[in-house]
Nucleic acid binder design. Structure first.
Length: 589
DNA sequence: TACACTTGTCATTCA
DNA sequence: GATGAATGACAAGTG
């Protein structure tokens, strides 16, 4: 039975590979695979069925294995250091487990060939959906996929260079896969995400891999002994990330794969980048219950600082600019990144929590250096004001209530509290600028020690304002500044309202213009219809005229000549036969 | 670097 | 005359 089917299968496999090549050549043009051969699809369906059966067997085997591993991981979970993978995530990552870990495959005695790996990849990515295949959904965007799923991949890749059971071309293929820009971008995103979420590196290797994968473009060729310290479930995740990220047309991509560093063995790499980890985890193996015990042993050790790992990571050797890493470390404060107007999003900049650490003295110091780095802080500074809710509520309160609230929150943002929580053209960034602009007035007022808030100066009624002014002894400069602040504040609001009205007028006029255009088109159509109707009526009248005129006879029974006579009718409907000459005379009369 | 857009500010007019 | 609203014009910041 198998002797008969196998040759057939191989033949179909050859056809499939040939069509695969053709399809991958044209997939960039948007051609679907089914375009090439209809019979191929039938063969493909059969092949898929066979492979699905094989996969089911493999998956069943792997699931049993994973269950055992999960049971082992649960033991680690007692230490609080390891979180077991979800079954679904592992199920998605089971295909290539054997293929990616040569030692593991050898242990199972069920290693797949490179072609089989590629077939599994081709199945993983639906070939009849080139659009999706060309743009595989980054697994990092999939919440269901653990971050470590992707990040484990690069650390496992170098193992192929060490694995005598696998062909050398497989390593190159992995290098190509890892060199995919999309994959690297995704890995970098995962790296950033992981570093943002985790303050320390987990001993499970989830955060080791980010630091490693981040520099894959430059150093992905370096072999690593990471797989030796890697629990098998992470090796499983390798396949999941691979199948999720690698596009089926990867063979189309010609990449300059760096020479696999023969001078970099896994031990050298580990000594270079993970000296401590190597000392602790080298005895680890991927099989047996020893791993669990040793992993628990690692988990009890102090966690490795991710930045330390980054400093050890290959990126520092391949990157020409190690300085950004130092800056990145400073970004943990949450200020350096967001403080930059180029990198900070308006929403983040408006987040009061991030800028809450600035004090009044900070803003005053920053005010003296416009355009400098501190000026950016000056723009952030007013964001420590009340929240939007408080500002909105402030805008609705009376002046007295506002004064009361201002007493508690002296730095209430003036614009928001002035009843214009939503200026006409205000965006977040512009709102930030607006706040920064008014904060200068506030800082000027503070510099002159004006005992009134800018909001009070601007929004108080004249009587209340005068009363407040009379309560304080103000010098000339203070009075002038208060008048300027009040004038500018009111004018600013007026300008905003004016512009809003202008825009509303423009919108209204545009709408009116549209309606007028529609009316014009309707009238033109109506005119055309009327003209057509009139033309038809004239035609009918002419026909009727000729018909009636042709029926008229003189005394001799001869028809009247149309050149000598014509028919005319009066208002009462009476019709006369009038000679042409007489008709002319009648007209003249 | 040029350009468009937004916003703040000033000057002016009017009620 | 003082005040506020409205608006054109200009400058500065930003993408």
């Amino acid at each position: 039975m198998m002797e008969i089917e196998l040759p057939k299968m191989h033949q179909s496999q050859q056809d499939m590979d040939l069509i695969d090549i053709l399809w991958r050549q044209d997939v960039d043009l948007g051609a679907g695979r089914e375009v090439f051969d209809f019979s191929f699809r039938q063969k493909e369906v059969e092949l898929r069925r066979q492979r699905e059966q094989e996969e089911e067997k493999q998956q069943q085997r792997l699931q049993d294995q994973e269950k055992a591993l999960l049971a082992q991981l649960q033991l680690d979970e007692e230490t609080g250091e390891f979180v077991p993978r979800s079954l679904s995530a592992q199920t998605n990552t089971t295909h290539g487990e054997i293929t990616q870990n040569g030692a593991f495959a050898g242990h199972e005695g069920d290693a797949l060939s490179f072609d089989e790996c590629m077939q599994l990849l081709a199945e993983t990515f639906p070939l009849d959906e080139p659009a999706e295949s060309l743009q595989p959904a980054p697994p990092c965007l999939d919440a269901s996929v653990p971050p470590s799923t992707d990040l484990m991949m690069p650390t496992n890749s170098p193992v192929f260079t060490q694995n005598p059971l696998l062909p050398g071309s497989l390593d190159q293929a992995w290098m190509e896969l890892l060199s995919l820009p999309e994959l690297q971008q995704c890995l970098n995103m995962q790296m950033q995400e992981t570093l943002n979420m985790d303050g320390f590196l987990k001993p499970s290797g989830e955060t080791q891999n980010p630091s490693y994968s981040q520099y894959l473009p430059g150093m992905d060729h370096l072999p690593s002994a990471q797989t030796e310290v890697c629990p098998p479930e992470y090796i499983n995740t390798y396949d999941g990330s691979f199948s999720n990220m690698v596009s089926p047309n990867l063979s189309q991509m010609s990449l300059n794969v760096p020479d696999v560093g023969a001078e970099f063995g896994p031990e050298e790499f580990n000594e270079l980048f993970y000296p401590e980890m190597e000392a602790k985890v080298n005895p680890l193996t991927c099989d047996g219950g020893h791993m669990v015990h040793q992993l628990a042993e690692i988990s009890n050790d102090p966690p490795v600082n991710p930045m330390d790992l980054q400093s050890f990571s290959p990126g520092n050797f391949s990157s020409e600019k190690p300085e950004p890493m130092v800056e990145f470390a400073d970004s943990d404060s949450g200020l350096s990144l967001d403080s930059s107007p180029h990198t900070s999003s308006p929403g983040k900049s408006l987040n009061g929590d991030e800028s809450f650490g600035f004090s009044d003295s900070d803003s005053e110091e920053m005010d003296g250096s416009p355009g400098s780095m501190e000026s950016d802080y000056t723009e952030i500074f007013p964001l420590v004001y009340l929240t939007d809710e408080a500002q909105a509520s402030l805008s609705e309160k009376s002046a007295a209530e506002q004064r009361e609230i201002k007493a508690k929150n002296p730095k209430t943002e003036p614009v928001e509290a002035s009843g214009h929580s939503k200026p006409p053209f205000t965006k977040d960034k512009q709102k930030k600028r607006s706040e920064a602009r008014l904060s200068r007035d506030e800082q000027r007022a503070k510099a002159l020690q004006i005992p009134l808030t800018v909001d009070m100066i601007i929004n108080l009624p004249v009587d209340d304002f005068n009363e407040m002014m009379s309560k304080h002894q103000l010098n000339e400069a203070q009075l002038a500044l208060i008048r300027d602040i009040r004038r500018r504040g009111k004018n600013k609001v007026a300008a905003q309202n004016c512009r809003k009205r202008k825009m509303d007028n423009i919108v209204g006029l545009e709408s009116e213009l549209d309606s007028l255009k529609e009316e014009k088109e309707r009238l033109k159509k109506e005119k055309s219809e009327r003209s057509t109707s009139l033309r038809e009526m004239k035609q009918q009248l002419s026909t009727l005229y000729q018909e009636v005129f042709g029926m008229l006879r003189d005394e001799k029974g001869k028809p009247f000549s149309p050149n000598e006579y014509s028919l005319q009718h009066t208002a009462d409907g009476t019709v006369f036969l009038v000679p042409r000459l007489k008709k002319t005379l009648v007209k003249n009369n």
